[in-house]
Design a protein around this nucleic acid. Structure first.
Lengths: 352, 352
DNA sequence: AGGTGTTGTGTAATCGATTTCAATGCCATC
DNA sequence: GATGGCATTGAAATCGATTACACAACACCT
């Protein structure tokens, strides 16, 4: 109210520092810092400081805080592409969990490119991040040494060599088995699949399909592609143009499934009358497309939340041995795998 | 190679500071800083510094750099929910553009909650961000004063009172008109819509529909809901249970459209035979669901990229007057608005 | 009464970089 | 040969906070 300097209320153009608050409150900067943090301060002074903070409009400078305290309160989230609904959902869960404990998230898209992965990992080091949640390509997963990095890493969706790093993954073998058993129970026998070729996930789901088929004395034809809708659509068109096409096809993730469905539509193939289709990721559209697509639903939000929880636990005890949390997928059977093949068409897949 | 201290190669457990690099290179810290930046340094010393950086494995501390240089090289991206495909795509574009110019992105989800918006805006101030790209609710858009904030703001998807802030928005009136004209051309006359009630976007699209209808001497029935699939599905079920339902319904965004389609399915309503459906956002599933949904496609990636470009231009010239970039949507007509109503059903919508 | 903690506070050092400022050497110019 | 730029370089100040340390006041226990 009086004709002081310039602390009338706010917007004095100059940013107000902790020193200004100390001056206004008539205490030392250390006391202000402690009052704002958790240090021991008398109630009397704490109130004075709070009043001074309100009067000056003080906002702490996080860069200065990070530099001095050596805690960035920042975690990195490195995924291939946030536009993949799986990563979108995981990212939302990670961010919710991070902000809930006062941490910031830096999001990076690698496009399955090992060079970008290396670049972003270096960036994380420069940011002095508290930790990183990472969905690596197979190439970097193998050569990844979390000790070397200087911060803990929790892998998601994709696993590294065991014992190397914490990880939250789907039980891909089990999930693939669920799909295969479902298809077999429907009556399909000639089953194939299109799998992403950049991650361990594609490989594991492929292995799971093979193993499940083998338990029934059957084989499966698999093809490997870049895990994008475009590549999947192209591969699908090519496959459908060939003479012998399996009765049922499995996609190794939601993007591939999307491309396959587009390819089937372009080729005029009726689902499931001429071809059954199933895949991973219960994205919005799978419920609504055609007869509904049979998929393995991943606990997407849970994966992100669990990854963040593991990261925090790892920070509390850096020495404990690496853990791998394996979550189960849920089969959602829909029309795309109904067995509607007529008796005459059935001869294709008749038991030998 | 010799028995120096501990700069054998790397991982000496201690982080290496610029001082260590200076020592290793036999120059001052200032020279190292200049060599790494853009300062004037002789080629000879620059090479020495680069060698020392490589030998010591130096990684700059970004917090220290930010504190001293007073440039955070960080922008905030505040949206309602990254899981809305519209914001997912925008976010990817913003991040691409940001990393391309050496900036970091902090992503915040507000869930259309003004309190969270206020909290994140304060966080942005503490981070001393270079700028913010923001999709505000109507409530905060009105009371938003970019001058007060201390950093430039570019609004996306939603507009503020004119002249207040830069913005990148869709031409909602035009887009709504495209939808209405399309429906009218198909033969529909009794048209209604479900609109989000938290943003200016829902309001503008509603106004656009009304205006277009009015040009034809027609009226439209509108309802307002929280812009989520769940709220839309519930509202849809309720609406469909009433006696007089419009022949065609418009959704004000992708999430609402999704909920409406679910509601229609749950009620056993055939699209487009019993009800035509159209909306905004060309999300993946709209192409594949049922007969395909007629939508307005937004230039999502362009919106993000343009917002980032405007932010950079604003930084170069803080004084220039506020600009609003208005982009056009594209009508994608699909089966959900085909006019297939039988003659007997047609009497409902016969001209009066 | 005399140590012995405990609690609360201030002073000053510190985090790791950038940037200011002064100094140096070198060359061209008069 | 003195002088005035120009290009490099280093020493030291600085960014804005946290925290180590010292110390005062006060309660508590022999």
């Amino acid at each position: 109210m009086q004709d002081h300097d310039n602390l009338t209320e706010n917007d004095c153009k100059m940013t107000v520092r902790i020193k200004d608050v100390a001056l206004a409150a008539g205490v030392s900067v250390a006391t202000v810092s402690r009052a704002l943090g958790d240090g021991p301060v008398s109630d009397e002074l704490r109130k004075k400081v709070e009043a001074a903070v309100a009067a000056t409009g003080y906002l702490p400078n996080l860069s200065a805080r990070r530099l001095r305290s050596q805690h960035s309160h920042t975690i990195g989230l490195i995924v291939s592409d946030i536009r993949n609904p799986f990563f979108t959902a995981v990212s939302r869960a990670v961010e919710d969990a991070a902000y809930a404990v006062g941490m910031r998230v830096i999001l990076c898209n690698t496009d399955e490119n090992p060079q970008k992965e290396a670049m972003y990992l270096r960036l994380m080091q420069e940011e002095r991040v508290t930790g990183v949640i990472f969905a690596p390509t197979r190439a970097t997963a193998q050569k990844l040494d979390p000790q070397q990095l200087g911060f803990p890493v929790v892998l998601i969706d994709r696993a590294a060599p065991p014992g190397q790093a914490d990880a939250v993954v789907l039980d891909n073998a089990e999930a693939a088995s669920l799909l295969v058993e479902h298809l077999l129970a429907q009556g399909y026998q000639r089953i194939g699949g299109l799998f992403g070729n950049t991650s361990t996930t594609g490989a594991e789901r492929h292995a799971g399909v093979l193993a499940a088929m083998q338990r029934h004395g059957l084989q499966a034809e698999a093809r490997f592609i870049a895990p994008t809708p475009e590549a999947a659509e192209q591969a699908m068109r090519a496959w459908l143009a060939e003479p012998a096409v399996p009765q049922a096809l499995i996609a190794s993730n939601g993007l591939v499934l999307l491309g396959m469905l587009r390819g089937a539509r372009a080729a005029g193939i009726a689902i499931p009358q001429q071809l059954a289709l199933a895949g991973f990721d219960n994205d919005n559209w799978t419920e609504l497309a055609g007869p509904g697509l049979t998929v393995i639903e991943q606990p997407v939000y849970d994966i992100g939340r669990t990854a963040m929880k593991m990261l925090l636990e790892r920070l509390e005890d850096p020495a404990r041995s690496a853990r791998k949390v394996v979550l189960s997928g849920r089969l959602i059977a829909r029309g795309s795998t109904a067995y509607t093949m007529a008796a005459d068409a059935g001869q294709d897949g008749a038991p030998r």
